[in-house]
Design a protein around this nucleic acid. Structure first.
Length: 418
RNA sequence: GGAGGGGUGGCAGAGCGGUCAAAUGCAACGGACUGUAAAUCCGUCGACUUCGGUCUACGAAAGUUCAAAUCUUUCCCCCUCCA
């Protein structure tokens, strides 16, 4: 299996991160050279601040960077303050809405937070560094850019790029603005090369076109070989992209999603995904992973628990992971009401309408939905199915000062007396 | 600038004067079966409701009509072809 000289690439292959590389053997040699000499290679991962947190779908490249750093290399995290003002057309049919300054600033802060959960930032040689491409794009002159960069791009070739071609094939509009996106990303790569000696870009496979834009620009303009390295798109067994739970994104930042929900997302992963997810979303050694993924039937639940715990640990810290796990075990295995469940605090529960409580907890979005669920036996109070949609609580429902509310089999919450 | 086509629920996509809260598919949700899995089956899927109904919705506004997603006018947006 170990066909590479560099530790990094071997890990990538072994754990299923490897999809495509611009020049495998040269990249390997370069990394090996760096690893041997103790001089970190520099690689970057870019992300446009279109939201204020990354989500599970972004973890794959984040974990690649994490390993990159573990192998002694230096990760740069680039936020696209400039490119977000344009919008990457890859994989999209519509022009993105423009973002105002304030949201961009807010989003960039959020991304910093997300990045720092997976990478170590600081001042030593291989610590991660955050950069914003707005810094070099904000003062750029249009004519100068066209002349210095535009000359290296062939429109003929750009039209064959997937991001462009698929739009055209599907007869979706593509503005000139978006068409320029790949030049900007190419420019980023070269800029990072100039400033930090960055030779590698790591990303999801949908970025291939944008990456090669950079490597080609590097070759033409600076006569240097830059490397691009991509991961496969990780899908679940239905072939859908990972990262949605109950129709909502699984966010990295805790203010967007409680750790308990984060834990549950991984706990509920399909059997077929366990091995793949252990490799990608945890730091566990391969021996351990091979042992876990060999488990079958009921036993595989042990593997899922470890997966959920480890994944939560990386992102939310060990304490949070423990609490989430304890809560999950208490509620699901012991049928109790665990401590970290979503909770509603009330001064008194007498006369409180059950439906209102469910709405307030966010389990249902309307009372109508709640009524339907009651008809379908989907709502429970203290583990007893409720058949009266107008049920009102009284202090008789309190058990140890709290009431357990459940919607379906998986959503549980509490009402506590404050 | 000219000619034509189109904007419908989370998405895709029917409907083209009443029977339309709007077919169908996907997604989502609940139940059964299980292992907090997958597959399958059954059910639900605008809001409020004293479950009788009430209200808001088919790009926006105005109009015709007892009645409009469906017809008319204006506006906005998109697509295709021509210049």
């Amino acid at each position: 299996m170990s066909q590479f000289k560099s530790e990094f690439l071997n890990i990538m292959v072994e754990r299923g991160f490897y999809n495509q590389c611009t020049n495998e053997s040269a990249f390997d040699a370069y990394l090996y050279e760096c690893e041997k000499s103790g001089k970190p290679a520099v690689g970057y991962l870019g992300s446009d601040p279109t939201g204020d947190s990354l989500h599970v779908g972004h973890i794959v490249p984040l974990m690649m960077m994490r390993w990159f750093q573990k192998c002694g290399h230096k990760p740069l995290t680039l936020v696209g303050g400039a490119t977000a003002r344009i919008g990457d057309p890859s994989g999209k049919d519509k022009l993105r809405p423009f973002l105002d300054e304030e949201t961009l600033k807010h989003n960039i802060e959020g991304l910093k937070k997300s990045f720092s959960k997976f990478l170590k930032f600081g001042n030593s040689a291989n610590d991660a560094v955050m950069v914003d491409n707005w810094d070099w794009f904000k003062d750029i002159n249009y004519l100068a850019f066209l002349r210095d960069i535009g000359t290296y791009y062939s429109v003929n070739r750009m039209l064959t790029m997937d991001s462009v071609k698929s739009r055209l094939d599907r007869e979706q509009p593509m503005s000139f603005l978006e068409f320029n996106y790949m030049l900007l990303q190419g420019y980023d790569f070269c800029e990072l090369f100039q400033k930090y000696g960055c030779r590698a870009q790591i990303a999801g496979s949908d970025q291939w076109g944008n990456i090669t834009s950079g490597t080609e620009l590097g070759r033409r303009k600076y006569d240097v070989e830059l490397f691009g390295f991509t991961s496969p798109i990780i899908t679940d067994s239905n072939g859908k992209k990972m990262g949605k739970s109950e129709g909502n994104a699984v966010w990295i930042n805790e203010e967007k999603l409680p750790s308990y929900n984060y834990y549950q997302y991984f706990r509920n992963i399909g059997d077929a995904e366990v091995g793949k997810c252990l490799r990608i979303y945890t730091d566990l050694p391969m021996d351990e992973i091979r042992r876990l993924e060999a488990l079958k039937d009921q036993e595989i639940n042990e593997a899922k628990k470890i997966l959920a715990f480890e994944a939560t640990k990386i992102c939310r810290g060990e304490e949070e992971a423990k609490t989430a796990q304890e809560t999950a075990i208490a509620t699901f295995e012991k049928g109790l009401a665990g401590g970290d469940l979503p909770c509603l605090e009330k001064a008194s529960v007498d006369g409180l309408s059950m439906l209102d409580a469910f709405v307030e907890l966010g389990f249902i979005s309307s009372k109508g939905e709640g009524r339907r669920l009651v008809k379908q036996a989907g709502l429970k109070i203290n583990d007893k199915v409720i058949s009266d949609e107008n049920y009102k609580f009284s202090s008789a429902d309190l058990i140890d000062g709290q009431i357990k509310l459940s919607q379906g089999k998986k959503k549980h919450g509490l009402i506590k007396i404050a």
